[in-house]
Amino acid sequence: MTTLNHPPGSADLPALKARALNLRRTMLHMASGKGEGYIAQGLGIADCLAAIYFHELRYDAANPAWADRDRFVLSTGHYAIAMYAVLAEAGYLEAAELPSYGLNGSRLPMSTFDDIPGVEMVGGSLGHGLGQAVGMAMALKLDGRPSRVFCEFSDGELQEGSTWEATMGAATFKCDNLVALIDCNGIQADGPVTVQIEPVADKFTAFGWDTVEVNGNDMAALVDALAGAREKNGRPKAIVLRTTPGHGVPTLVARDRAHFVRVDNSEWDALKAELESTHG
């Protein structure tokens, strides 16, 4: 059985950055011509996904049900565009299928469902991910499995009470095999994050988690933070990611209404060129 990234060796940062660039290329390709969507969040989380899937996570794309796999739980189902991009990059999905993203009848809908290979939960209703991840982590500990659970959720989801119920639960049940990846991109449906949720890192620390805060678009910082989250010390781990929606494509970074961004059909080629020049 081919399993990736266990135990993680030293990080190949240029290779990981190349993966992240590929993910962004794929997402722009998937979004092209669709007029609107969650491309900004996808571009923002791309570095984290590259670090997870090509450095830290243990999985076998040929055997998605492998019992000893690490679980990556994407709570923000609307980040589906990024999830499918990384699942294709990792070998779970065929690249040829990706342009069907969001189309009627596609098995790659705009929000994730758990019947897609490599997707661990039904996303879409925010505030569901962390609690399920806690349950998974508890079961893996109960079975004595070495697997870990990585749960991505967003700053907007910190407004859901269920997230804090789960935050307490993770500490109570000593889920040191759980790593929260909190995407603080500063946006939600109606615009900028509207409720006072800061200081995020201090809150998780106060709730009994080992917490670090990093620039979520800095690959070296991501890799270091993930390495620091491996300790089996009885405490869950939180990595607060400060990400920029649209990262890598300055026009999208500057665009209003970044949560569900509008893009004219005529713009895509220019955006793709921007991505290449930014990384060039």
């Binding site: 609690g131 399920q132 806690v134 349950g135 508890m138 079961a139 269920s162 119920e165 307490m168 639960g169």
Partner: peptide
């Protein structure tokens, strides 16, 4: 194999779902 999640019914259901996804 018994867990009391406290007064947190949403967490109860989410944790139960997560446990089930690992075969419980």
């Amino acid at each position: 194999r018994f867990f009391n999640v406290g007064m947190a019914e949403q967490d109860l259901i989410m944790i139960a779902a997560g446990l089930s996804k690992v075969g419980k």
